[in-house]
């Protein structure tokens, strides 16, 4: 006996995470998640505009932070989610992991773009220009490129199953190189711009600003998860539709799944 290939047994987690069960569970969870996200974001906006004090240096512009910081955080979390899903897909071969990775990419890219856009708007009154090659902004920009690469690779391969596997490989390569990119960008930044221009967040934040920020971060995180879940549901429905269409094509041609017998 030199080589044996045996089909893996379905594990307990695989049974729990089967697409049908996921559709049921997410269907009941969706409205609550979306409602909670909307309520928290509205509350955060109220806090931001009517409760939080103006910064004595930055004035009203400091309130861009309530969108900028959660967006940046979720932009990074999106990639972490892709990396975890990619690992799950390559190691455990679970189709839901691929659905999760696919749904997370445009979402992560959108939040990363939001972080860049708000950072740029914040930068205008602070630095006098819309773009500064600050270490954080540059890292976010490169993160956006990695998202673009993932989405472009998926769209360029016709075989959807193959596209999922290759994107999983790229996602894992990306997540191993990201810390090195981050480190090198920080190094480059200190080389060319010794003093940090602005402190965007960190422990020195005023407590009156901290509370709205936490509420906002929580609200946007729930929004992210709600959108991600919605994206996964759409993708599952799209795949079911495709499977039905393919079955229809086979039936029209007068063949069913080819089978072999001795």
């Amino acid at each position: 006996m030199t080589q044996t290939n045996t089909a893996p047994q379905q594990s307990l987690t695989q049974k729990l995470a089967n697409p049908t069960r996921f559709m049921q569970l997410s269907g009941t969870l969706m409205p609550w998640l979306a409602g909670a996200a909307a309520a928290l974001i509205l509350y955060a906006l109220y806090l931001a505009f009517f409760v939080a004090p103006e910064d004595y240096q930055q004035g009203q512009t400091v309130k861009i932070m309530f969108i900028h910081v959660p967006a940046a955080w979720l932009g990074m979390m999106g990639y972490a989610l892709i990396a975890i899903s990619s690992f799950g897909y390559l190691v455990f071969r679970h189709p839901l992991a691929d659905v999760s990775a696919k749904a997370a990419a445009p979402l992560g890219a959108a939040f990363t773009f939001l972080a860049l856009a708000t950072g740029s708007l914040w930068g205008k009154p602070m630095w006098g220009t819309y773009w500064v090659w600050d270490a954080r902004l540059t890292s976010m920009l490169i993160l956006l490129f990695l998202y673009f690469g993932l989405m472009a690779l998926r769209s360029a391969i016709d075989d959807e199953a193959l596209a999922g596997k290759l994107c999983a490989v790229l996602g894992l390569v990306g997540v191993t190189i990201l810390p090195i990119i981050k480190f090198s960008v920080d190094w480059w930044n200190t080389l060319h711009q010794p003093a940090s221009v602005i402190r965007m967040d960190g422990p020195t934040i005023h407590p009156d600003l901290l509370w709205p920020l936490i509420v906002s971060a929580l609200g946007f995180s729930l929004l992210f998860f709600a959108l991600h879940m919605k994206g996964m549901r759409n993708e599952i429905l799209r795949r079911r539709l495709r499977a039905l269409t393919m079955a229809e094509v086979d039936r029209a041609r007068g063949v069913s799944a080819p089978a072999a017998a001795e």
């Binding site: 075989d159 959807e160 495709r242 799944a257 080819p258 089978a259 072999a260």
Partner: peptide
């Protein structure tokens, strides 16, 4: 892909 090409061949 979604198609079963070989089914229980011995």
């Amino acid at each position: 892909g979604a198609r079963r090409i070989v089914d229980d061949l011995s």
